[in-house]
Write a protein that binds this DNA or RNA. Sequence first.
DNA 1: CTGAAAGCGCTAACAC
DNA 2: GTGTTAGCGCTTTCAG
Lengths: 320, 320
Amino acid sequence: MKTVSRVLNHEPNVSEETRRRVEEAVARLQYRPNPSARTLAGRRSYLVAMLYDNPSSNYLMEVELGVLDACQSQHYNMMLAPLVYDAKDIVAKVEVLVVQSRVDGVVLTPPITDDQALLRRLDELGVPYASVSPKEENRRIGVIVDERRAAAEIVGHLASLGHTRIAHIKGHPAHGASGWRLEGYREGLARAGLRYEPALVVDGEFSYDSGYVATNALLDLARPPTAIFAANDDMAAGAICAICERGLSVPRDVSVCGFDDTPIARHIYPALTTVRQPTREMGRLAALELLKAIRKPGSGGMVEVPYTLQLRRSTGPAPA
Amino acid sequence: MKTVSRVLNHEPNVSEETRRRVEEAVARLQYRPNPSARTLAGRRSYLVAMLYDNPSSNYLMEVELGVLDACQSQHYNMMLAPLVYDAKDIVAKVEVLVVQSRVDGVVLTPPITDDQALLRRLDELGVPYASVSPKEENRRIGVIVDERRAAAEIVGHLASLGHTRIAHIKGHPAHGASGWRLEGYREGLARAGLRYEPALVVDGEFSYDSGYVATNALLDLARPPTAIFAANDDMAAGAICAICERGLSVPRDVSVCGFDDTPIARHIYPALTTVRQPTREMGRLAALELLKAIRKPGSGGMVEVPYTLQLRRSTGPAPA
DNA sequence: CTGAAAGCGCTAACAC
DNA sequence: GTGTTAGCGCTTTCAG
């Protein structure tokens, strides 16, 4: 019996001959190990959890699918753990999860990626974790995009269209992405030889409504911008709405671009110029690195994936 | 020990006093039963799977959250089973799932709700299932909305605005919803005393692009419609794009309405008049009925949930 | 390299 | 109403 167990778990100390015979029998009998018995007896659960906040976004659905891809390919199960990110009980919740479900590892998505208390506790518990787009500080295992460079590039695109007054709507302050995109904005401006003007940078929080509000503030300026770089697509959609409501036209009067390339980018009119992140692939790669670390502690690392600029109809030449 | 087990599983034959004391101890010790041990010893897995196709929609993400709500509240786990709905290997895939993961039940979403071969096999295996918006034929356990009445009502709204040439873009033929919405369209027309005109009904498949294409066909008609009822929001968004591209305005020249009230409905310009389904609640209720059936075979039923009309800016008076 | 023995934490079946 | 006993199907430990 133990020999069969060894073969199934790819453990050493089985003769080639025995291994072959076991495998033949497994195939013939269509034998499938019982996951619960494995979990109960062993110390692995073959289960990883995906922790996330803000459940209703397309972004997360994509990441989730990627994580699922990776797990299924390695005969792991995935469980979902939506958490309300308010930093109070989050550590306790995760503890319950780890203790009760005995998860072998977790995938973190922003902004949970950057909860220091949680990361510390996970380290203490010895639970490996992979992060999707974490802030600089905990770059250990996971996947990342050079968002700063992407933002600089899209701002460069705006500048190349002749825009000189380019505004930026910031993202939610708890997300690392907001910082990178702002830095990229400034970098893009600098490269194009444009001056950074604080009045053209307004707060947002990644929601449609915040984009709408922020844009109205920008359009009320004595010298309003001719282009707006919103830190994500939802806010860009809100910006377009605010612009249209004033009887202005996108991109004739104001150009707008976003970030993420969620489905909404293609579904609004005019279609949005934005930065595409390979979200599903990111989930897959993060999970794959996590699984490496689960198998062999210390292995797994940070992988960087490429972005692509999606030039569509929401950006055009600066008005004369 | 067994007494504790009884309390935790809400089984009968425990005195109120004992039950209370056990619960107190559970709370004090933060005791959490081990799912694997339960599964191994008992015949239940405390696991339900959600089967779905077409993973990248907001609709599914919402349903998923609802199912998760219900499962968590009853200490069940949920697993995701994305399936490519092409009716060939779907039965085999589900068999593996049921046999290997020993799921106690499954939640079905359209169009998987209506795969007769799958339903038959599930019945044979004795695996209970709940369906979200299934076609008439398998109304056993699940949740449903009176989509037909909703469609009739929204068409009535269009008629009350003075529209007499109201077009309809149909949904994907494999979905029961497409049929109901078409019926509702005809019913709404009839009630308003308007004639049903086959030329004003065009095919779609629930995608943005199909709505765009369909709308162009409608606008090319000798006598184009002044209002379009698209069978879902994505197609309505495509319709708005097609209309805007011709230099026409929504709702001044053409009114547009959709169905579902997904986030895109609020995020496009102008915001979409549509029918809101309580999607998350539907997932929750479907799962709850499933859990009833798991606990007590034969119980659980079909529950109907209310819809609400969301009147927004994409519909207005018929042009003079 | 192989296998026997002893559980993992729970529930089913059956006493009491 | 409550407790006892015997596993569920594996992995661990340790002896051969």
